[in-house]
């Protein structure tokens, strides 16, 4: 068997000692204290809530979204107020051209002919 180097010897001693280390005996009520501290909380309730939590979160989000949609869809439609409409561009009203009317009425050709092409009546 090959002889161990001082380093190997040191490593082996360290390993052996670490593994063989005694652990002091814990207090007799060690487990009981842990269990009673854990028992203070109701694990079943925690489990139940943990399953319920995602459903509750989804429900609340969808409620909020629904409320927003309802609010948006029932909002008063924005009507154009009369005051908002700019007044139509005012065009200067020309006074009827009475002279022209007179001339047309007195002309020998019928009035409607003036809307016809010049060669249509001939």
């Amino acid at each position: 068997m090959p002889e161990m180097t001082p380093e190997e010897w040191a490593d082996a001693a360290l390993r052996r000692e670490l593994r063989g280390m005694d652990v002091p005996e814990p207090s007799p009520d060690f487990d009981q204290r842990v269990l009673s501290a854990v028992r203070g909380r109701s694990p079943l309730r925690e489990v139940f809530l943990s399953y319920l939590r995602p459903a509750l979160a989804t429900a609340s989000v969808s409620t909020v979204v629904t409320l927003l949609l309802v609010h948006w869809s029932t909002r008063p439609v924005h009507t154009v107020e009369a005051a908002d409409v700019p007044p139509p561009a005012t065009q200067p009203q020309r006074a009827p051209d009475t002279d022209l009317v007179e001339r047309l009425l007195n002309s020998p050709r019928p009035t409607y002919l003036i809307f016809m092409k010049p060669d249509a009546g001939s």
Partner: peptide, 16 residues
């Protein structure tokens, strides 16, 4: 799921 027997088992395994 909160089984106390399981806690006791883990305690015995990991206490020391």
């Amino acid at each position: 799921i909160g089984d106390e027997a399981a806690f006791a088992w883990l305690l015995s395994r990991y206490r020391a």
